[in-house]
Each structure stands twice: as C-alpha cells, then as structure tokens.
C-alpha cells in the first residue's frame, strides 16, 4: 500500500465568466520516504493539487488515500488528528506566521495542539527541534520577525517535523532564498528524510531544485499530468513538450568565452 494514492483528481474554477479546469483527472502515488517533484509553469495546476491535498480547498472529483484513510472524506476531529501526519512548508514564511510570535510559540503550537509531548517536556522538545534544523536553542526567545529568511525557513521546517509527519508538502519552499542558503536547506531536507523516512511532495517551477532532491518527477501542464518518471529519465529524456520547455528554461552558467547563449523558447 502506497503512503499516498491520488486517483482521478479534478477541480474547476470559474474565472472571468469562463470555466477553467485547474486539475483534470490527475492520478499519482507516493511511497514512504520518497520525494516526488511536481513541476510545471504558473497556472499548470501544481499548487491547486497541493492545496486540495492539504484540504485547504475541496476537489470536484476523484479520491485521495493517505495512510490508508479516505482523505477527502475525513472531517472534524478525525481530520484534525490525522493532519499531524501531513505537514507543509510554503514559500512566504513570514506570511505563514503570526508576526508577533516568538520562535518558541511557533513551535509550541503544533506540539500542544497535537499533544506530541507533555507540557513539561515541550521546552526541551523545542530546543531539540531547533538544534535539529541547525539553529541554536537560544533562538526560542527571538521574535519571528528578527530572524533572517533562511533561518525562518529552518523554523518552518522544524514546525513541520514537530508533529512527526509521514509526508511534507513543500510548495516553492526554497524559491525565495539566496542560492547559498537554498543549497543548505535542500541538504537539511534530504538529511531529515533519510533519518525519519519522511516523504516529500515538492512543488516547484524550478527543475534544478527538483533534480537535486527528487526520486521521481511529475510534470503538469494546463491541469493535466503530462509526464511522470524517474528524475534522471525525465531530465535526460523528456517525452512531453512541457518537460522540454521547463528544461530549456533552467539558466545554465556560461563560463566559457563570450559565446552568446540563446534561450530556445
């Protein structure tokens, strides 16, 4: 049994009087401890898929099985309880936190809500979480606003792993970071996966990022899944025009003599 099994998922939006298929009949699976990179241009439906999976918006049709639960049928207390196992990290970190929060309170919330550890042990758990993502335990008392973008992303990861999830949905989670920090965050995510067997659904328009961490890559275009396969296979032998366009768009470092680079789009 797969950790995650998405079957025939569909969702339509109406936009400016037109009916737009944001997702058409998308099916995919994800195994424990695996990373599936979900690539696509803006408007391809990849974020809609992530939002339905996180139960932030409803689907029009299709099913999702997560840890053998009929995920879209869960509601109320049962959904809240199971949600601990599926966490998320988004691009806009500051927007995801109460701006007046301290680092400790950001990490205390999931521990308290999901009753991960008894109250008396929470400060120790918070210190361990911070340490695990490469931050000093003394950061607990800082305001979430006074830490840097990269540190804030580490805190978002600490919050995501706090509930001991089996799946984390990462939506453009490193896109806003400087390249030097981006690499370190990707390394941290890979370490956490190897250590805890967490699966990632990694949504990004940047194939270079997905190539770094994904076992398999899925490519979306206009709400449809147009290609899925082993990461090396999709990158080296893309079959869909959408995958070829994404590959061509990755900027190459041109270090040779001033030979002109052409963007073949």
């Amino acid at each position: 049994m797969m950790l995650l099994d998405i079957a025939n998922l569909s969702r339509r939006f109406s936009s400016g009087g037109r009916d737009v298929a944001a997702l058409s009949d998308v099916s995919l699976t994800l195994a424990s401890g695996e990373t599936l990179g979900l690539a696509g241009a803006s408007g391809s439906g990849k974020s809609t898929l992530a939002r339905i999976l996180l139960r932030l918006i409803p689907a029009d049709g299709g099913t999702i099985h997560f840890e053998e639960n009929d995920w879209l049928k869960l509601s109320g207390a049962e959904l809240r309880r199971r949600r601990a196992k599926m966490q998320m990290v988004f691009q806009d970190i500051l927007g995801a936190f109460n701006p007046r929060a301290t680092v400790a309170s950001v990490l205390d919330d999931p521990l308290r809500i999901h009753e991960i550890v008894p109250k008396a042990e929470r400060p120790k758990e918070i210190a361990a979480l911070l340490e695990r993502v490469g931050l000093p335990a003394s950061y607990a008392t800082r305001s979430i606003r006074e830490v840097s973008g990269g540190q804030r992303q580490r805190i978002a990861i600490a919050r995501a792993i706090a509930t001991r999830p089996s799946l984390i949905v990462l939506d453009e989670a490193v896109s806003a970071l400087d390249v030097s920090i981006r690499g370190k965050i990707l390394e941290l995510l890979v370490e956490l996966q190897q250590e805890r067997g967490i699966a990632y659904l990694f949504v990004s328009h940047d194939l270079a990022v997905l190539r770094a961490v994904s076992h398999r890559i899925a490519v979306m275009e206009a709400g449809r899944l147009v290609e899925i396969g082993a990461a090396s296979q999709v990158i080296e032998n893309p079959r869909s025009s959408a995958a070829r366009a994404l590959i061509a768009a990755v900027p190459r470092l041109v270090t040779g003599l001033p030979e002109r680079h052409h963007y073949d789009v």
Binding site: T35, S214, L253
Partner: peptide
C-alpha cells in the same frame, strides 16, 4: 549554483 548537470543530493 545548481543546474540540471549538478549531481543530485539523493
């Protein structure tokens, strides 16, 4: 810098 020819982390 990371592009498609950079060795993956996994």
């Amino acid at each position: 810098h990371r592009d498609l020819s950079t060795p993956p982390l996994i």
